[in-house]
């Protein structure tokens, strides 16, 4: 069974919100496990892990430094260097925050790596998101692959003119310096030429639109989306009430 893209978005979004609001160890760990499991089942683990690492490693490290070393409420001191104190409470708080954050980020990443972009693009106008907004969303989702393929072409053109790129991430990053400006100007130029084509094909018109692609949406899924949205609202409200009380 294939879920409507908005249903998967609602699942990912509400999971992220509820885990953040709940701030519960077991829930965060369960969500992390579920996200990794789902991604493995869907065969998207290979692109997911580096992306997750790129986002989470710096964030989690900064949480550890911030709360692990400087946690005012900390009592049980494990080590101390001047004003910096490693406390059990601080470490536990940092780990909990890191787990919460990882759960939310993984849930959203699993969605973004598994969603069928064409389905999502087709589903947006049907839900009242019209014209330019839908196109901006669609081009944002398709921009990465387009930019990646343009980048590859620029790199090939430069290699064909004697730019030596050796294997390895560092060499590639050093070479990227030469490709960044051409990439941006190529993307801007392409956007300019595409503008007239889109206008001539009626893309700027304000009237109603239809969609060629059929994206089935079951009543049960609509119900599920409403429920998930409400659950997220309730979780945030409960958290605020708890904090206030």
């Amino acid at each position: 069974m294939r879920l409507h893209p908005l249903t998967s978005l609602a699942v990912a979004g509400s999971t992220a919100v509820i885990t953040t609001a709940a701030a519960s160890w077991p829930l965060s760990l369960a969500v992390i496990a579920a996200a990794v499991g789902l991604s493995a089942l869907g065969g998207t683990l290979r692109p997911l892990l580096p992306a997750a690492a790129a986002v989470l490693v710096p964030l989690c490290l900064s949480l550890l430094v911030l709360h692990g070393l400087f946690f005012p409420e900390g009592v049980s001191v494990l080590a101390q260097w001047g004003p910096a104190r490693v406390t059990t409470e601080g470490l536990s708080f940092a780990l909990q925050r890191a787990a919460q954050l990882s759960a939310a980020v993984l849930a959203l990443l699993v969605f973004s790596f598994s969603v069928n972009v064409p389905d999502l693009v087709a589903a947006l106008p049907a839900k009242g998101i019209q014209g330019r907004v839908a196109f901006v969303l669609a081009s944002t989702l398709t921009l990465m692959p387009a930019a990646a393929s343009r980048l590859q072409r620029i790199r090939q053109a430069q290699e064909a003119r004697g730019l030596v790129i050796r294997r390895g991430l560092l060499h590639r990053m050093a070479a990227f310096r030469l490709q960044a400006v051409p990439l941006v100007s190529a993307l801007v130029e392409e956007a300019g030429t595409r503008g007239s084509a889109l206008d001539a094909r009626g893309f700027g018109s304000t009237g109603p639109r239809t969609s060629y692609r059929e994206v089935p949406d079951r009543p049960l899924e609509r119900l599920l989306r409403t429920f998930l949205l409400l659950a997220a609202v309730v979780a945030v409200a409960a958290r605020l009430w708890q904090a206030g009380g």
Binding site: V121, S139, A197, L198, R209
Partner: peptide, 26 residues
């Protein structure tokens, strides 16, 4: 290639892009 929308996933949908914008039924 500069005439294409770049946001459609199949040749059929690319052909239909202009008709979608004009609100033609499926």
């Amino acid at each position: 290639s500069s005439a294409l929308s770049t946001v459609r996933a199949t040749v059929a949908e690319e052909l239909a892009f202009g008709l979608e914008n004009a609100g033609v039924d499926r």
